[in-house]
């Protein structure tokens, strides 16, 4: 299990770097943008809000940079991410906690579907090289190169506005339903999630297909695959032997892809006005809500690191070589 402990240590270091960067960005920027926002909100916000903001960004406090840094950590470890300016007096933590389940549900399910489906199609494309699946590659390249949110805009225009098959926005029908664990609400949520999920799958699947196809082609030239076929094993068995080994780099590549997919999915949420973290991020940008902006960055980063760790566990489970004690 040395590999796992090493990875955990690495993710911890990465988390510390991210948190530190998050602390320094507002303090290194030219022309102190926080001061400008403070001047604007002074009229409407209570003295408490301003005081909290001043502490968070180290304005007009006597504490030095190191003291501020220590204080920032202590706030974080107590789960205090500050107070939102736009939704005052709501806390940043509370806002994110309300939005996170939507994002994790949508992006998680879509990513898993995309990975499984893409890997299967990649195996098929490699096995039947030169078939119609290869013809799909250029089209998929376009979907991969086009921004996620453009695919989302097209999906809204075509399937929601033009054909009216799916609702164009929001996570559920807010006018008639209340969130609860009943059938009416859940089916409504599902109905609203299909189009965003399909968009994310469509935009991210090409990477898995192409990666798996190329890896399969390399693996199929290995001697053991040739031997399996020479022995007269049915094609399905031969493919499964090759696919198992070709899968490993795909799982390892998951950590590189997850950041891209999450970023893309955040923008997809914005197009669908989906009540997740991406939409919250957009409102934070629009209203210069710096505490919310930074809180979202931290939470997204930590979530991505956790997803990476999970992928590493799967990898260790799949590849016995990593489990060997050396």
């Amino acid at each position: 299990m040395r590999m796992i402990t090493r990875r955990i240590a690495f993710y911890l270091v990465t988390a510390v770097v991210a948190i530190t960067v998050n602390f320094f960005i507002p303090r290194l920027m030219p022309g102190n943008p926080v001061l400008a926002v403070l001047g604007r909100v002074q009229a409407q916000e209570s003295r408490q809000a301003i005081a909290a903001l001043e502490v968070q960004y180290g304005i007009a406090t006597k504490t030095g940079l190191w003291g501020q840094y220590v204080q920032y950590w202590s706030h974080l470890l107590h789960g205090n991410l500050g107070t939102s300016l736009n939704f005052y007096p709501a806390s940043v933590g509370g806002l994110i906690r309300a939005a996170l389940p939507w994002t994790v549900g949508l992006v998680g399910v879509a990513t898993i579907i995309s990975f499984l489906l893409g890997t299967l199609l990649g195996v098929a494309a490699a096995w039947r090289r030169g078939s119609w699946l290869d013809g799909l590659l250029p089209a998929m390249t376009f979907f991969q190169a086009a921004p996620y949110f453009f695919v989302a805009i097209l999906a809204v225009a075509l399937f929601a506005t033009k054909l009216g098959w799916f609702p164009p926005n929001s996570g559920y029908d807010t006018t008639t339903l209340n969130p609860g664990l009943d059938w009416a609400f859940l089916s409504n949520v599902l109905d609203h999630a299909v189009l965003p999920a399909v968009t994310i799958v469509l935009a991210s699947i090409a990477g898995w297909i192409i990666g798996m196809r190329n890896m399969m082609i390399t693996t199929m030239d290995e001697d053991y695959v040739l031997l399996a076929q020479a022995k007269g094993l049915p094609s399905r068995r031969v493919v499964s032997y090759a696919a198992r080994n070709a899968l490993l780099p795909s799982v390892a590549g998951f950590s590189l892809a997850i950041g891209f997919i999450v970023s893309g999915a955040l923008l997809t949420e914005l197009v669908f006005s989906y009540p997740g973290v991406g939409y919250l991020l957009f409102t934070a940008i629009g209203s210069d809500d710096y505490p919310l902006l930074q809180g979202i960055f931290l939470i997204i980063t930590l979530t991505v690191l956790l997803a990476n760790l999970a992928a590493d566990f799967v990898y260790a489970f799949l590849d016995p070589r990593t489990r060997q004690e050396t």
């Binding site: 990465t14 960005i25 991020l281 210069d288 902006l293």
Partner: peptide, 25 residues
């Protein structure tokens, strides 16, 4: 390598949003 790996797993877009957010629109 450690530095490169850290930059690989940090989600880039949210980081850039924070940087550009503070740079001022």
């Amino acid at each position: 390598s450690m530095l490169a790996n850290i930059f690989l797993v940090l989600p880039a877009l949210p980081l850039l949003i924070v940087i550009f957010g503070f740079l001022g629109k």
